[in-house]
Design a protein around this nucleic acid. Structure first.
Lengths: 150, 150
DNA sequence: CTATATAGTTAACCGCACTTAACTAACTAG
DNA sequence: CTAGTTAGTTAAGTGCGGTTAACTATATAG
């Protein structure tokens, strides 16, 4: 019934709308938190990847080790990150989220997704079911992209 | 069958996955373009809202008129924006996208959504149909949020 | 016509994320 | 043990987006 082209068109339209909304809430929250974008980026990186070293961070942000070290140092001072020696390699550091850092991040995700709840009120129960199963298909396909296999 | 709660959970899970992917491509493109985030933000604003004055921009970025004026000035110099007098009010300016600016933006959206095409290859035709109709539901609901009415 | 408000620009300055370069300390290979 | 590499820090300096303050020019109200 529908071509892959139609699929792309609809996906993109949705993506535009979705990004627009999420970004708005996102940047609003980032501003109100008083943190800078790179600082938030570090928090997110560690949240997803778990504790990591300075080099991991500098690689992720595409900056020098020096820059990452300075950033992390400041954020440790703010109580957002914990920095400890790596027991296996005493040159390296293990940077992890503090409770405060984790709380901040989760509140951010909360703010970013708040409007999603309003969305639900504009759908019937049956429509919600339809959306849920469709999103599950997308999630599966999305994960399949990560594990390309053959 | 499914509660609004279940809807929220699935939506958020999808949102996380989606944002993660899109943001990655996005920031990669922003970096490669040589533009800064606020500069891109101005481009997007004008792309969506059409020509606007300095004040509109400063309001959108939540900065002073001075900052917006300076940024716009620089971007006019780069050939990304056009700045003209507003014929109705000669104090005001009309800032619009140049062809170069528009092209840059559209290539960015392209990069951001490239992975969506790969997604389609992991779904059957029937699954794609299912997704399309679900997304259309979401789009409608999303638009309903903008026009709250009663 | 005079007052005042509005749109935008300009200049001087500040903070912050970056860079490069020099350094310390720990691991690794010969 | 020595030489060289790797992880991270520190210091000095740069660029850019941001601010406030002073200014120009147009529009509007009495």
């Amino acid at each position: 019934m529908s071509s892959p082209k139609q699929f792309n068109i609809t996906m993109r339209e949705w993506a535009e709308s979705f990004m627009h909304r999420s970004m708005r809430e996102w940047s609003r929250y980032v501003k109100s938190s008083g943190l800078s974008m790179p600082q938030f980026s570090i928090l997110m990186k560690i949240y997803h990847r778990g504790g990591c070293g300075i080099s991991d961070i500098s690689q992720h942000l595409d900056v020098t080790n020096a820059a990452a070290s300075q950033l992390v140092d400041k954020m440790v001072g703010m109580g957002l990150l914990d920095r400890a020696e790596d027991p296996n390699d005493r040159r390296a550091k293990q940077v992890t989220l503090s409770n405060k850092g984790r709380a901040l991040l989760e509140k951010g995700a909360e703010a970013r997704n708040r409007w999603v709840e309003d969305l639900a009120t504009h759908l019937t129960a049956q429509q919600r079911d339809e959306v849920i199963s469709a999103l599950k298909l997308l999630l599966e396909a999305s994960h399949a992209l990560d594990a390309p296999k053959s």
